[in-house]
Every structure is written in C-alpha cells, then in structure tokens.
Design a binder for these strands. Structure first.
Lengths: 174, 174
DNA sequence: GGCCGACGTGTCAAGACTGACATGTCGGTG
DNA sequence: CACCGACATGTCAGTCTTGACACGTCGGCC
C-alpha cells in the first residue's frame, strides 16, 4: 500500500491540504509514479491522522484543513524509503501497449510506434521548455521539483529512442 | 481495465494456457508493464471466453486449457492499440520512492540513490549478458521478445543515469 | 447583487486486485 | 513405489481503487 507513503512524503516536505495534495497527484507525481484521486486521498488522510502519522496544523477558509507529517510519520517514511527495494509493483498502461505491439501487423505497429516517438518527443521538448523558462514552477506547491522533471525528461527520451530503434528494426525487416 | 488487453495481446501472438500466461506476467511483462497473478488471470480468461474474445483450442494434461484469441478478440486488441493514447494509468512503487527522496536528509537520500544506481546498473548488465548469451531465451514461451529486452535495458540505463545525475547534484550542494 | 468557476471535502456502490487457502495431476528421482 | 516439486486451476474474503453523486464556500466579473 503506497498511497500513505506518497502522502507522507509530500507532507514531510511541506504542509498541504487534501485539495493541494490532489493537485500534485494530477501533475508529475501522478504521471510518472503514482496516481490517486481525491476520493482515496481524503479518507486516507483521516486514517493517517488517526494513526498519528499526520496532523492538522491549521484550518482555512471553506473548511480546508492543512496537514503536516508528524515525527512518527517522518520515521515511518524514512523506514520505508531506506528499506531494501522489494519486488516493486508496476502498472503502466502505456508500456503495456508498447509490449503488445508485436501482436499487430508490422504496418500497424509502425504507425503506433511513430506516434509514440512523436508524442514523447513533444512531451520532452515541452518539459525542457518549461524547466528553462520558469524553473520556479517546478518547485511551487503543485510542481514536484527538479528531480521529477529530470526523471520525466530522461524517461521521455528513453522511450523516444526506444521507439526509434524499434521503427528502424521493423523497417529493416520489411 | 488493461488485463484483458494484455491477455489478448499475448494470445494473439501464440496460444497459451492460463498457467503459461501467468509465467509471462512473472517475467518482463510483469516487471516493466503490467503485473497480474493467476488469481486474476484465470477468472478473466473465463470472462473473456464468455464474451467470445478468446477460445479454448485444446485441452492437455492435468486439466490444462490452451486459449487463443478469436477474430473478435484480435479486432478488440487492434482497436485498443490503435486508439489515441489517453491519460494512461501509472503505478510504480519504485519510481514513487525516487520521487519521495527529497523528503529525506541529503545524507540518507544519497545512500538510497547510490543503491538505486548500483541495482539498476547490475540489472542492465545482467539483461545485456542474457541477451547476448542466449538471444533465443527472449523469444521463447516465457520471454517476451527483443522489444521488451531493449525497452528494459534502456529503462535501466535511464534510471541509472538519472540517479548518477541526482547524486552529483546532491554532492555539489553539500 | 447574481452567477459562475474554482476551491474544498465528503460518501457510496461497483469493480479490481491480493494473499490465503484448496485441490488434484504428472514426471522424475531415490 | 513413495515422495516431491512443478504443473494446473480454482475460490473467497478483505482491501484498494474508481466514478458518480453530493454539498457547501469564496472571489471575481458583469
């Protein structure tokens, strides 16, 4: 169960409300690492507060509650992060599609690969532009930091290069 | 719901039994793209057979049933693969850990990053060795093909490079 | 002052997934 | 020929996740 750890990690860096946390999951975090909607976040925050992993530090307008990680929460987070990597759970629909391409006719597969190459290339360019134009946007309340941006960039580039390799391979076979 | 599509993709390439499918999910497919245990695979196969997406082509020893994709199944698979990429579902505990590193003390984060770099580097080397030593193992009933191997390799290398970048960045800050 | 969109939190039913448990078969080794 | 490990399929309860629905608030624009 990774959601509590994800929330703990976010709240250890800076206090946020459930609503703000939801926004983060819609950005880089949800795109590369772990997705979650507000319908799982709010109940989870309540459960974690009961367990003493997080606490409400202030209440704002419109009934908003700002949470922060407690010492117990930080300890739990550290334990999780420092523990040896077990066989991780992976679920990535995009990658699944790529793996299934060999089930298509080569001509169809080529079309899809081409689209993948284009899409990821565009995404990488976009990310590079954002990072250079406004580096602060990445560290703001919704962005997730330089680490994530760099990871995403390298990820896109790797996929684009892989797609290019696959296209070349398919064309050589034809 | 991606599991049926994953099964369809596998069965479109070659007929397999539920047991064999389970094995594939324990290999590359489950490691990079989508994991599933036999407890979800068997019921799903039955559902898909009812819908006419797959069919039992032969029954072997120990009650084993070999499934193959039907024409309807292939059509469904093609539709799915050719349709424009929607916002994909991503869930990767390993990546989540990486994203949460900024919540740790730099010294701790460094330790974890170093371990990530080592682990992925070893995994990449391993994969490279397997591919060169016995390229046929990749295309056998359990392997998932050159495409997957290449993807995994590039993936590992990207993560390793990213970790190296992050380590350098952390050390420069210190 | 009314309206609307973003803010902000929540429930609930339906569906998906995991891990524990269950059951039986075939092939090879000692 | 007894045993064991791999083969092979299955159920089920508990948990997690998703999507639909629900409700109220604040700020800004017309």
């Amino acid at each position: 169960m990774s959601l509590p750890h994800a929330l703990l990690g976010l709240l250890a860096v800076q206090p946020r409300s459930g609503y703000e946390l939801t926004k983060v999951f819609e950005q880089d975090l949800g795109r590369y690492a772990w997705q979650a909607g507000h319908t799982s976040i709010y109940p989870e925050l309540n459960r974690m507060a009961e367990k003493g992993l997080v606490e409400v530090t202030s209440e704002g307008a419109r009934g908003s509650r700002t949470y922060a990680a407690t010492d117990a929460g930080r300890a739990e987070l550290r334990t999780w992060l420092m523990s040896p990597p077990t066989q991780a759970k992976v679920r990535n629909e995009q990658v699944l599609r790529m793996f299934m391409l060999s089930a298509l006719e080569p001509a169809d597969a080529l079309v899809v690969l081409q689209r993948i190459a284009e899409t990821t290339d565009r995404a990488a360019a976009e990310l590079r532009k954002v990072r250079e134009a406004e580096p602060d946007a990445l560290t703001g309340p919704e962005g997730f930091g330089q680490l994530a941006a760099e990871y995403g960039l390298r990820q896109y580039e790797a996929v684009r290069d892989w797609a290019g390799w696959a296209i070349e391979r398919l064309e050589r076979e034809a």
